[in-house]
Simulated assay, not measured.
Amino acid sequence: MTVIRLAGRDVRLTTRAGHGLTVVLVGGCGVPSPLWQPVVELLPGRAVTRLDRPGLGSPWPGRLPTLAEEVDTLAALADRIGSPVVLVAHSMAGPHAEAFTRLHPDLVRGLVVVDGSVEWDLRPAGVRDRGLRMFWLAAARVVRRLLRPEPFRVLGRLAGRVVVALQSRLRIWSPMPGVAILGEPDAAASVLAENGAYADQLRDLDQVRAQDPWPGTPTVVLTAAGDGGPSWVGDQRRLADLLGADQVVVEDSRHLMMLDCPASVADAVRTVAPVGEKEVS
């Protein structure tokens, strides 16, 4: 794992050399990159880079993130590791990946959206939203201070395990490599900050959708059926239709599909970027 600066922000990268186009794995809000390990093991020999956004193993910058920042970070990463890349984006990273692909279609050969965040009826931002942003930012700063003493970090690590257990088929006592980082002050602050930025980022994605057509990038939308039920499957189907993607409903998975059904994620990677595919110069 290496902390580097990309597009003006410190992020953590975990890389594995290999053949073919680099597979970039990006987790959702508060999902540390070690949770992707089961997927990495099912992609033997392939070049893989895991990205942790600011706060997870790197300093939290002290503000709410924007969609533009996330897109710029992905663009800088693609430039660093060599493009085009195969992008695998979970949950809240799904909107980041979609916006990045629309704005930089030449940098993405294939996209896998893993139970990506969707909202279809967002109202325009108003005064209430400004107040909520201020609340989330203040909460992030307070939590970062509160978690400095070790006893509170222990509670933070326990909370992280509980969240992972609630969003997967793991039990709270199961091995969870990397989850301990959620007890660190910067990590906890980043989770709150990303929650505070959620609605604004999806509104910004709607603007990108209106201005930049989908480029036809090969895409698979993986939907975890174990949490949201038929309405969630329907929302995800609408996303797949928007992206001209194949939707794969994974019946025995909850939200953290990289833990519950890593084979489904690896299969989707092979669908959008078959083994041996090279960059076309």
Rank of each mutant, 00 (worst) to 15 (best):
M1V: 06
V3E: 14
V3A: 07
I4N: 01
L6G: 07
G8Y: 06
R9G: 03
R9H: 13
R9M: 08
T14H: 10
A17M: 07
H19Y: 08
T22H: 08
V24H: 10
G30T: 09
V31N: 10
P34H: 10
L35Q: 14
W36K: 15
Q37T: 11
Q37Y: 03
V39G: 09
V39L: 09
V40I: 13
L42Y: 02
L43A: 08
A47M: 03
T49E: 13
D52H: 07
R53L: 15
P54S: 03
G55M: 07
L56R: 00
G57M: 09
G57A: 11
R63H: 14
L67K: 02
A68N: 06
A68H: 08
E69I: 01
E69D: 14
V71M: 04
T73V: 15
A75R: 09
R80F: 02
I81Y: 13
G82E: 08
V85T: 12
L87A: 12
H90C: 15
M92S: 14
G94M: 00
H96N: 11
T101V: 11
T101S: 04
R102G: 11
R102Y: 01
H104F: 01
D106S: 00
L107G: 06
R109I: 03
V114K: 00
V114Q: 01
G116A: 15
V118P: 03
W120N: 04
P124K: 10
D129H: 11
D129L: 07
L132A: 13
F135W: 11
A138R: 11
A139W: 07
R141D: 13
R144G: 11
R144T: 01
R145W: 10
L146A: 06
L147V: 01
L147K: 00
R148D: 13
R153A: 01
R153Q: 12
V154F: 00
G156S: 03
R157M: 06
L158W: 09
G160W: 04
R161T: 03
V162T: 14
V164M: 15
A165L: 15
L166W: 14
Q167I: 05
Q167C: 12
R171C: 05
I172E: 05
S174L: 10
S174Q: 04
M176S: 09
P177R: 00
V179Q: 07
I181C: 08
I181M: 14
D186N: 05
A189G: 13
A189P: 11
A193S: 06
A199K: 03
A199M: 08
D200H: 03
L205E: 02
V208T: 09
A210T: 00
A210S: 10
A210F: 08
P213L: 08
G216F: 06
T217G: 09
V220M: 07
V221G: 12
L222Y: 04
T223R: 01
T223H: 05
T223G: 02
A224I: 10
A225T: 09
D227S: 14
G228M: 05
G228R: 01
G228N: 04
G229L: 12
G229V: 12
P230C: 05
S231D: 12
W232P: 02
D235Y: 12
Q236T: 02
R237E: 06
R237K: 03
A240Q: 04
D241N: 12
L242N: 05
G244T: 12
D246K: 01
L256D: 13
M257H: 01
C261W: 00
P262W: 02
A263E: 08
V265M: 03
A268F: 09
A268Q: 08
V269N: 12
V272T: 05
A273P: 04
